[in-house]
Structures are given as structure tokens and as C-alpha cells.
Design a protein around this nucleic acid. Structure first.
Lengths: 246, 246
DNA sequence: GCTCTACTGTTTATGGCATACGCGGTATTG
DNA sequence: CAATACCGCGTATGCCATAAACAGTAGAGC
């Protein structure tokens, strides 16, 4: 019944009676400006004033296009996601399909990591969100899973991708601020831990530190993403075939 | 090297020279007050003024205890998590252990869901965070996984739990606002989707809606959590034993 | 053509926020 | 007793989102 206004606008369900003066902006221009601000200065800088300044327009002008800042943020999340990757061919392996789907999502989010700090206010109803959902479901077509199981599986993957990108981005700019190279990010965390922990109370972590688990250069963010995805896909494979994934 | 100040305080590494007047507050009192405000009015209401008012103290007094609001938010996330559940016995099944670990975390987060909107600013260094990590590692002791693999596994589970609780909380208060019962939450989403979608462009979602996947009362949030956990655990089991999980 | 009217972008105002700064007071240390 | 170092507070600054009132503009109907 009550779909938020910005959602209806995004789907083109609101027609404008062309009465008054011509509009100087479009929703797309506004969202683009917001993306520029966010990329340059992070989410806290994404204020109505900054966006308006970017467009050489007064702050309040934006409210002719958007009902509230929250609505604009919803539009931003949709724009960041962008359209989903091409759909898989009918004969393709579902595993490859889901992996590619997740990886494409990762790439999209990673190009605007600050946007992950936007508080989610509900399940996605925006066009790109729905299109991604459709694409994900298509990847799972051959699995024979029940419809709600497919949804749950996609939610699982989606959550993983978001968490992964957010965590990496946080790590990155936490240690960016400390003028450390990317390679030292993890080892910096290890050293911080080592300073706080004593071996008696935290034997497992101590062991981890002894094993230099945080200094290993071999395991970058890409490997971590691949690791998580393989675990999830293995878990789904058990459900699909009842067999181990070879 | 440079551990944030609030982290050092939380670990008790800052000793106070007892010179001046007695302190009227403690960090714990402040955090408790913040939790009360958050629980009552949500994260946006958690402002320094509101917390100070809750304690009958001026706003600026809080800054004698906390370097910034961000630091206070870190303390809040740690308090919400609380101490981890009891460690598993040496002979226990790792699967049960991890599930219980995740479920305990879910319970902790669910009692303060608003706190999940606090932006994470890096890997956890606070006492409870570290204690939970230790507990999780202990659950994985019998698996024989490599140390960094264990970490990756815990991160995977942790991300899932957080995402799941956050999503559920968002759904809940999105539809709370629309004066709808909890049972109608999902079906309300289904109806919104149905209004926006056409069957040609979104055949898979259309099919999902036809199958009434959003109206099924049988699949509540608990089942969804269990589903995700079982998938992840199955995926890990493949890694641990090289065999399917029965 | 003219007027009406809905729509445009703008200015100004309000109330909230985090926090920098400096004050007078207080309890411990020498 | 005096010095010191810390306490809690009041004030002030500069952001922020957004409500309200305003003057200009262009299409609709005549």
C-alpha cells in the first residue's frame, strides 16, 4: 500500500504536470553530485548543503526533488549498486553464477565503500535492488531449491558481501589515518592486540599471534572474500545435491 | 603503536592520579545511561546532551570521561556485546559450539538492535570483542584448521549474525511505523513488490510472488537465522572433514 | 492576447547537534 | 598552608536538516 515516495519516483510512477518553470536539475544530477561528495570526503560530508553547493544551487532547492535526506540516501544506495551483471545462460553452473553475482556486487560496493555506512531502513524496493534480486534468483534457477530458500540463500550471500567490503574499507581508512602502508594494516592490528592481551587469559589469541597469523602477506582481502564465498557455496551445495562439493 | 585512547581506558591501562575533586561519574554509568537513551529512542537520540540529561549533569561534563562521541559509541558497542557465553568443554562438538556462540551473539545484539547502526571503525580491540574472539577460537579448537582460517571462519559467522539481526530490526521498525502486525511484515513487502514489478521484466520474482513466498507464516526470523547458520556450518564442515555433513 | 494557478528556486528562521575554550572551585600533595 | 592538577560547568561556534514565506515563471483555459 504505502510505498515511500522516493521509491515511486525512482520507478517512474510519478508523472509531473508540466506547469511551472523548467526544472534546472534532475534526480540523477543530484545523486551524481552526492556520489562525488561522498567519494571525496566520506559519508559524514554528504550533507544537503554540500550537495547543493556542488550543483551551484541553494540547499533548499534539493527538497523540490527529494522528500528528505533519508530518501536521497536510498537513491544513493541504489545508484551505487548500479544494474546487475548480465544474466547467466540457461545451461551455466549455478555455483559459478552465484560467485560472479557476488563478485560483481563486491566490485560495485567497493567503488563507493563509504556508502555502506548508510543505515539500511528496510528490504530493498529500489529498481536496482530488485534487479539484482532477479539476477540472483536466475542464477539459482537450476538448483531446484524452494522459492523462499532461494531468497534466504541470496540474503546470506548479500550480507556476506556487504560485511566483507565494509570491514575491509574500515580497516583501510583506520590505518590510512596512521600513515601505514596497506601491507602493514593487518600486522598493525596484530601488534595492537599483542599489547593488550596476556597469554593466560587469551591462550587461543596468543597462539594466533605466535603463529604470526596477522603478518602473513599471502592472505589479502581477495583471498578472504574467496574463502567466505567458497564456504557459503559449499554449504548451499550440500543443500542442493545432498553431496559434498567434490 | 597508537591504540585509541578509549581502548586503553577500557582495558584499564590508564591510571588516574587522584589529585583533584572526586569524580561524580564513572564510564560505566555513562554507558548505561547511553544504553537507556538508545533503547528508549533509538540511535539518533543518543546525543551527548541527552545522555548528560539522563545523568543530571551538564553536557560538557561527559568530555572529562570520553575523548569524543565516537569513543563513547565504541564503548557502547562493547557493552552491548557483553561477555561471551561460557567456553565449551574440551570434548564438545565444534559445530554445536559455534552455533551456540553465534546464537548467544544474536541474543546480545537483539536486545539492543539500534546499536547495530553504529558505524564500525575498525576491527574490534575492546575487551568484550576480544573475549568473544577468544571464545570463538576455542570453539574451533578441535577442527585442526589453520589459525588464519579460524579467524576467517569467525569473521564469516560474525558478519552473518550482525547482518541478520540488523535486517530483522530494520524490517521490524519499518513496519512498526505502518501500524501493521509482525506477521504482516513480510507479506507487506511482498505486496509492495507486486505493485512495482511486471512479470516480463522480472519473471523470477514474479514466480516467487505467485508462490506466495512472502506470505508463508511458517518461516519466521528464527528459521532464517537457523538456515543461514546451517549453511555456513555445512560449508565449514566440508573444510574440516572433507566430507559432507551427513 | 490575458489571467489564473501550479510549480519553480530562494531567503530566512528554528531548533538541534558536537565540541573548543576558559572559568571558578576543590581535593590531594608537598 | 600553598601549589598543583583535575573537576564540572557556561558560553560560543559552526555545522546540520528542514519548516515557512516569498517572488518569479510558464502552461491552461478563456
Amino acid at each position: 500500500m504505502e510505498v515511500p515516495e522516493s521509491v515511486e519516483i525512482a520507478w517512474g510512477l510519478r508523472e509531473r504536470p508540466g506547469k511551472g518553470p523548467k526544472r534546472t536539475l534532475t534526480l540523477e544530477h543530484i545523486v551524481e553530485a552526492a556520489l562525488r561528495v561522498g567519494s571525496a570526503e566520506g559519508l559524514p560530508a554528504v550533507s544537503m548543503s554540500k550537495i547543493a553547493a556542488e550543483l551551484d544551487v541553494s540547499t533548499m532547492a534539493l527538497y523540490r526533488y527529494v522528500a528528505s535526506k533519508g530518501d536521497l540516501l536510498m537513491l544513493i544506495t541504489d545508484a551505487v549498486l548500479g544494474p546487475p551483471p548480465p544474466l547467466p545462460e540457461p545451461g551455466d553452473d549455478w555455483r559459478d553464477g552465484v560467485y560472479r553475482w557476488a563478485d560483481a556486487m563486491r566490485a560495485a560496493l567497493q567503488s563507493h565503500p563509504w556508502s555502506l555506512r548508510i543505515p539500511i531502513t528496510g528490504p530493498g524496493l529500489m529498481p536496482n535492488h530488485v534487479a539484482w534480486m532477479e539476477a540472483g534468483l536466475r542464477c539459482l534457477r537450476g538448483t531446484g531449491l524452494a522459492p523462499d530458500t532461494k531468497m534466504a540463500a541470496l540474503l546470506l550471500v548479500n550480507g556476506f558481501v556487504r560485511t566483507e567490503v565494509a570491514l575491509l574499507a574500515d580497516l583501510r581508512d583506520a590505518f590510512d589515518a596512521s600513515k601505514v602502508t596497506e601491507e602493514e594494516m593487518l600486522s598493525g592490528y596484530g601488534r595492537s592486540l599483542a599489547r593488550l592481551i596476556d597469554a593466560q587469559r587469551f591462550p587461543e589469541i596468543h597462539e594466533l599471534l605466535e603463529a604470526r597469523a596477522f603478518d602473513m602477506p599471502g592472505s589479502g582481502p581477495d583471498d578472504e572474500f574467496a574463502f567466505g564465498m567458497e564456504r557459503i557455496l559449499d554449504g548451499l551445495a550440500v543443500l542442493v545435491t545432498g553431496k559434498p562439493p567434490a
